[in-house]
Design a protein around this nucleic acid. Structure first.
Lengths: 342, 342
DNA sequence: GCTCTTGATGGAAGCGTTTCCGAAGATGTT
DNA sequence: AACATCTTCGGAAACGCTTCCATCAAGAGC
């Protein structure tokens, strides 16, 4: 694998018959370069297939043109979707995206220890996790811009959905159908210090309250995020003396798990019990799951725009909340007169 | 957001009472530094909470400690999984990961034009897409190491599964159950020049052949990758005078789509028709889909190890093929004596 | 025709490391 | 005691670019 000697800006300048200063200005489309000169420089660069050394450029300029993205889970649909949106706008803006997976607390410590290495990036966007005070100080110290996505944040600009609202859309649907014994399967991320989606839970209680329905503590079960965990939760609910006629799951993945338990128990959905999720995960459409849609890529894009704005020194909105929307498919129906067979 | 003046290596050197040369050597654990001196330098660095400037370091050293990962789809499970594995080993090796989404041909051109900007990365791993000759030359020109994952590659080291084998495992299962009219829903990526997963198709024909079964062209339908597309394909198959009693889908997502069509048509799975996929997507478990499992994260990890090896100048295996495994769940069963009701 | 702007250009000083090379002590050999 | 060898260390030249500042030429204004 032979590598031609890297052609440097000096080569371009020489070929174009100008000084390096001028070559640099021309190449960067900076002001104060005669049009003819600029063209000449560009041609020379073209001919030598020259491309600037980002290292040198960053070093001299003091900005890296890179932004770090910190995610707790890479392959979970929600995060992958955010990432996709984010990448698109960052790329359009000529920014490179450094990906960091920060799963558990250990990773987190390491990340804050090692990585925010000075000047590695100009900004970082943290996806769906809170940043404690000490960590905020670190960020501040390294002087990077921060934006958060997928969860609201006190200190930094953020984009997210209104979880409470999303939850109420799901619950409202169930209530509206006439359900009175509604269960909630709440999902939490074991590796995160706190849940960012409190709203999803509180929506349950407020909806019940608004509908004049009593809350039965047996009907809410909290599990770690994930399909199999959702199934476990459903098993528990099915073991109740009076099982629910409907279940509200914090996410589609959890809902899917619940449906599996239902299926294996020989119960029909929505005949015996209705199920509603949140997210509108691509598979929701494939299994005809009623859910509340949240625009995922769009959130990523907005976060991206915030970063770009910040980097340009513009003032950006402190927060934007994107709307969610109930999508009724076929896992929900009015309750049986006599509830599911117990 | 006030930023303290960046402390440089000169500060550290001064504080430790040594020259920059020595400080640099000490910090890099290079040979030829007295133990006492090294300790002193480290302490000074610690006290000043010094961290090297990656830009300057790269510039001087000529290596970036960064690797680019090029993916055709970020949020598709398979790629996200690869990414997850890859990120983990790259991170352990102290390498940063630059993410590039190269969806269609347009992106691709842009990528090769702009991004391989000299020195942005030390290596690139391309996920599941072929690299044409011109593009190979570009790579060579920029002198980076390349590894491929999720598809075999003629020129670069790669890691992948044996698609033919995976397909045969799926088909073999169907044949073994006694099916004789087996359909195939082949999935292709419209944005990619060629399908990297030819083996999945050829397995169909060879399995049929081995079983002494005739091929009926009506039974194979090719669609773009995706659940909804799978559903369409199934609709077409159901329209046949003699529909299949089993379908082999190129992926779980496609299989899921097919199942939706089946369900909507009032057909039961596996009662009326059996369905088998490939991948063992997390939801496969939740819908009890029979499938062929491929270790996704592991492939990412292996690709990562290859990169790390290459960067260390070691010789790495030209290719590694990870094993797949049939996972029988409940979407497959022997055919009805009289085929599905038409 | 002669200053005054204004616009285009070049010189050169950084940016923060790494690393080649030589200097100096320290150690070991006869 | 003189000399060769090692080890440890400092000086200084890259690395490839950006940008401040000065210079210079050419129109503008009188």
């Amino acid at each position: 694998m032979t590598v031609a000697r890297q052609v440097s800006m000096a080569d371009v300048a020489r070929r174009a018959g100008v000084s390096m200063a001028t070559a640099s200005r021309a190449l960067n489309n900076a002001a104060g370069v005669a049009e003819a000169t600029r063209t000449r420089v560009f041609r020379a660069a073209e001919e030598l297939s020259y491309v600037v050394s980002p290292e040198a450029s960053s070093l001299a300029r003091g900005a890296t043109q890179r932004v770090a993205v910190v995610v707790p889970h890479i392959s979970r649909w929600f995060f992958a979707g955010l990432l996709e949106g984010l990448e698109a706008v960052l790329r359009d803006a000529g920014l490179d995206l450094l990906l960091y997976h920060v799963g558990d607390m250990e990773d987190r410590r390491e990340f804050f220890d090692r990585l925010p290495a000075r000047r590695k990036v100009d900004a970082v966007v943290v996806l769906a996790f809170p940043v404690d005070e000490e960590e905020q100080r670190r960020f501040q110290l390294m002087g990077v811009d921060i934006v958060a996505a997928g969860g609201q944040h006190a200190t930094y600009p953020y984009v997210c959905i209104d979880d409470e609202m999303a939850g109420r859309q799901a619950m409202g649907h169930l209530v509206h159908l006439g359900h009175e014994r509604i269960a909630m399967i709440a999902a939490v991320d074991p590796d995160q210090p706190v849940s960012l989606q409190q709203g999803r839970s509180s929506a349950y209680y407020s909806s019940l309250h608004d509908a004049g329905l009593a809350v039965d503590d047996d009907l809410v079960v909290t599990v770690n995020w994930g399909g199999p965990e959702g199934a476990l939760a459903m098993d528990r609910l099915l073991g109740l003396r009076r099982p629910p006629t409907a279940v509200y799951a914090h996410s589609d993945e959890v809902a899917l798990g619940a449906m599996r338990s239902l299926r294996r128990a020989g119960l029909s959905v929505p005949g015996d019990v209705s199920v509603v999720g949140i997210d509108d995960h691509p598979v929701a459409e494939l299994v005809d799951l009623t859910t509340v849609r949240q625009p995922v890529e769009q959130q990523g894009e907005i976060a991206g725009e915030m970063v770009v704005g910040l980097l340009r020194g513009e003032v950006v909105q402190r927060s934007v909340t994107v709307p969610t929307q109930l999508v009724v498919r076929s896992t929900t129906a009015p309750p049986r007169r006599a509830g599911p067979r117990a």
